[in-house]
Design a protein around this nucleic acid. Sequence first.
DNA 1: TTTTGATGTCATGCT
DNA 2: TTAGCATGACATCAA
Length: 654
Amino acid sequence: MQIAKKYFTEGLIQLTILLSLIGVRVDIDSYLSGYYSPLIEINLGPSSAYTQTPFHNLRDTLDGYSVHPKCPELDYFFASRRLLDEVRTLGSPRFPTQLNAWLVHQVSATDKADCGPSTSNNTDTNTGLESPGDEARVEGEHLPDSGREVCQTTPEVGQRPCNSGACGFLKEEDEVKVKEEEEPAPLTQLAHSSTLEQESMLEGITALSDPASHHPPTIDIDQHWNSLLSLSVTDLDDLDTLVTERLSDLDTDITTAISQDVSLHDAMVTSVGAFGAASERAESRPVNQQQRALFRLESTGSSHSDASPGMALGLAALPFASVCNLTGNASQHSALGGCLDEAVFDQINQLGLEGLDTMDTQLMGCLGIDPQVLEDLDSDSGLSLESSSGGPVSPGSSEMSSSSSSYCEDECGATGYSSEVDSVPSKGIMDCTTTWSPIDLSESVWHDHSYSSPAFFDQPSVTLPHKGIKEEPLSDDDDDDGSRLDDRELSRDELRARAMCIPFSVLQIVNMPVEEFLEVLDGHGFSPDQVTLLRDIRRRGKNKLAAQNCRKRKLDAITGLQEEVERLHAQRDRLLREKQLTAKTMGAVGQQIKQLTRDVLARLRDDSGQPLNPERFTLQCGANGRVVVQPVRRPAVSTSTGNKTDKRKKEKKQ
DNA sequence: TTTTGATGTCATGCT
DNA sequence: TTAGCATGACATCAA
């Protein structure tokens, strides 16, 4: 039985390795870290829900982040994680190392069932190899073997417990220093392996090391954490120095930095678990939990080093900010984030943060984040970019995605027309605020500056005088001020729709797919006027978005041209300087040549023994490097050349 | 009162 | 033919 189990385990490992080599992520770790023991799932075999390749195939799609039916509780987590993955894809490419995490789960997961599903504590749970219990002992007998096999027979893959997460990152240095003496062979392999392999091997070494050595890192975590937190935002240079020193101390820090990125979802699981499920472990160890969560979040580059807290909140960390208690540690957060994965957020900023900022304020409210912070990040004009992007009502987000995806490629989030942005609030927000209605959102974000007129109800004409607003006294009826203000916030089309008793909001009309729109036109028995109004509203809404897009592009083009002009100016200045420098150099060289020529000629004698006259002779350097004295050509020569030019002119004329 | 930027809307061409 | 997009032009509002 043990032999069969061993073969089975090895087969799983090999299969996982092969899948990883062809780019299929075997991300069991995501599931493991939340609710279930990895050991149990491993024992369940390949039919386990954690063999989630289909999930990963779907995860990158718009609506493909649905969780495996066995884990519906993780739905909102994966929605958040998907967002973060999208953000991270803007940065440097990531490499799936969850395979390694899976392998290490085999090694160290014997006590997972006892110590809880969270993977962040496996600094301590690695001692599970010694944990009592029959099952743990049985696994303890096998898993270390399998782990060594993996480490030795497949060094190119190595091991890496992603679930070790930030703890692993912090303790690796110390542990590896200790293990360098104890484990020379793996480190030798490490030296010849790639970055991720080194990372994996280091983690594997850590996982296979003596459990007794895992207790000190808990202290080291705090020490490292305090040292890192002691850095201020303005100490980034020092932080870089610190990183450099650590790199010099241990050349695997880079790999650990990568591991931070890779294991972000672990942090999210941990954090989410602490936030949503309020697990016992989260209660028993809140400090470490938050620290790890925060550190991991930062390690994934969730902020600019110089970003304001609001900026940080507006980034991809938003879905996780409240979970990770981010708001209270913005400065430290920035320092760490800027160190670990700054490049990602450079690109995010370059790509425009509006897409991420379009996290609806209601969602922020659900997460306990002050929406005002986000509003500060936006322009004060209340651009309907927000409204369009925040068109969460969009029942036809797919339609919007198909129509706007082409432009979203380079400006996704910038203009806010991303279908993804549309889709996210439509799901996340609706989950959080069940009382939310499209009308309310349209009133709050659909920008239409005062085209609405309360007089419209008195004069239900289709054409609305734009200046009717000013003509309408505001204080005519104090009792109706509230309703009038509400009406004033509505757009003209909204008012028209109300007047025509159309049971759809403008956003719904604009954003619904064509098929659905046609069904609405046909199925609701609208009058021709209503149909016309619906079509006009839809057309105007679409055109409004198009106009905003167009203007955005125009501004971008102008900005690009300005930058191009500046670049060309700089190039021209540089070339002019080079030209002047070259002229000066040429002049100096010419003077030197003249002086040398005079000196040489003064030392030469003609047939009569007289020095050569520099006025009549000159030195000519031949192609072979020989210097020949030649008589200076008189103007007659120049006239001959002039004759030649005359001949050429004559030839041209002919 | 004028200027200017932002925005909505319409017309038109194209896909 | 229709829907949608892109864009120029114009109107309006507000600072």
